[in-house]
Design a protein around this nucleic acid. Sequence first.
DNA 1: TGATGCATGTAATCCGTTACATGATTCA
DNA 2: TGAATCATGTAACGGATTACATGCATCA
Lengths: 182, 182
Amino acid sequence: MAMNTRTLCLGILSLKEASGYELKKEIEEGMFRHFIDASFGSIYPALTQMSAEGLLTVRAEEQSGRPDKKVYAITEAGRAALAKGLAVIPARDKYKSEFLFEMLLQHLLNKEQVDLAISKQHADLTEDLGAIMEARAHKGGECNDPGSRFVMGYGECVVRAALGFLEAQCPWLRKNKIKAAE
Amino acid sequence: MAMNTRTLCLGILSLKEASGYELKKEIEEGMFRHFIDASFGSIYPALTQMSAEGLLTVRAEEQSGRPDKKVYAITEAGRAALAKGLAVIPARDKYKSEFLFEMLLQHLLNKEQVDLAISKQHADLTEDLGAIMEARAHKGGECNDPGSRFVMGYGECVVRAALGFLEAQCPWLRKNKIKAAE
DNA sequence: TGATGCATGTAATCCGTTACATGATTCA
DNA sequence: TGAATCATGTAACGGATTACATGCATCA
């Protein structure tokens, strides 16, 4: 085992209890978003399975008009399983970039396609950076543990470097930036 | 379509002809290694399939003692397919990091585990950086097209930033570095 | 003599995404 | 009125990894 949907859910549930829907939101919008994904199709079955194995408990919260919200909480067995998962030496980071693939083969593209790809990359990175800065500012209280600070710092540093490279290579990106800020 | 094993193979074969084995090596050791992987289990079937579709031609090179080496070359149809693949707006970069997951949950680990994970990350990044620098120095001729320079520059910049962050957070890494250089 | 590199392939299996199915509430 | 959010789940499908199967050459 190591980093599959199960371990991910256990990890979040070790911080706070949550429903499947809330876990998805946390994964998409929280700290995790920069280095993991997961979809409902993998989260819900993982949760059901882990409850059956005694790693989680479920509590159904009634709601008007909606299906009951199933709030999951981690058990002692769950914490043990998580600890075992974390004890595994982490696998090397995996980075997949269609953007860099396109850049490497840029001689096969025309200038517009290259510029478009670069703009898109720049926009994506800018959005990432924005999310980090907002997390730091907005919920300063929630993110003041050493783990969150480390991860945000790492992310900020890497994203800024990438952005800096793109802007150094393509001066026209800076113009767009100013335009966007107007 | 966009970035699957097929497009990847077409991309490399658009630069030079190669066998499945050589493609794997190129993916593991060349420019691509920083942002893609692929295993034999996906490369060989992709190659067979694309030959059948007329995107590639095969030429068997006899060799003593080994199975014939099957050298694949891209056809016009293959170049067209590749162009179509590249025309798709690239998907957002995907970054998966068990390292950052562990760092985020570092309160569940003891100091040795955290330090080990950080050292490993530092070593991995150092290796990546070394590969980039070596590629630049060693085969200066092969990597002087704009695409390679862009990708190497981007990689170098990001990896150095990550390394810088780790070293700023953990001064003891610098000691190790000096030790390693002795 | 044993590991590593060269060389190709297949099959089982895993893991995950996408799409489907359902349905009320709220906001523009 | 239509889109988005809240809320849970299943099933089909895809894509890739892993392990298996084979076997000679070379280097330490």
